[in-house]
Amino acid sequence: MTSHHMPLPFRPFQLIGRTVLGGLREIGHIASFSGRVITACVTPVIYPREVVRQCIKIGFYSLPVIGLTAVFIGAALALNIYTGGARFNAEQFVPNIVVLGITRELGPVLVGLMLAGRVSAGIAAEIGAMRVTEQIDALLTLSAKPERYLYAPRVIAGIATLPILVLVADIIGVLGGWLVAVGALNFNGALYLRNTWSFVTGNDIWSGLIKAAVFGGIISLMGCYQGDRSKGGAGGVGRAATLAVVGAAVLILASNYILTSIFVRIGL
């Protein structure tokens, strides 16, 4: 029965049913695609030259944007904590809370969200353009599997470089907080750094790096998935880039909550 013939009272149910089924189908597609790509990441043949090329594209070229993001976040965080802490005479905790907030939460999440925009969209647009210009068909005719040659190197590079970028963001973010604390809030520079160093634990840093690795995988996978499915010329490529950014951002925030819950439970 077509929607045209469906009695009016049942149309909302039809709409809900169609939406739910569409959503489930999409989840199935993403799961199947991810399974194939992750298998390609952990089984031979892996193309090291492509992995290195993608590490440079994803990691090295993201350093400026990550540095700028981290320094401003660290600075704003220090100001906010100082202002909030002043309400109950706790200004001295600025270095402790800045380093905790950056290493555990803001570093990985903001780096992840920035790269969802920069990297995921870039991958989706690149793969999408390859799809619509038959370059992926050409790969297949040359006996090269896109999962191995195109997608696995990007996912490996995403997983490998995000923790490094987050580590850089942690350091720059703390320095951003230090700049504001010393320059505007009259903190002693050496004392600030000593407090930061003595407060932060290995678990704080590791939990952020584990999150970063997961976010790196999500960012690359969503870019590859949406690019692979794109069709219909320039409009399709643009749509793929948009969907990749939105999908990666939502999955980063959702997985951040899940990972944080797990870390709290296991005491990491």
Binding site: M130, T133, D137, A138
Partner: peptide
Amino acid sequence: TGMLFQGGALFDS
């Protein structure tokens, strides 16, 4: 087999 695609489909990277 070999294949020559309409637009070339050369890998621009």
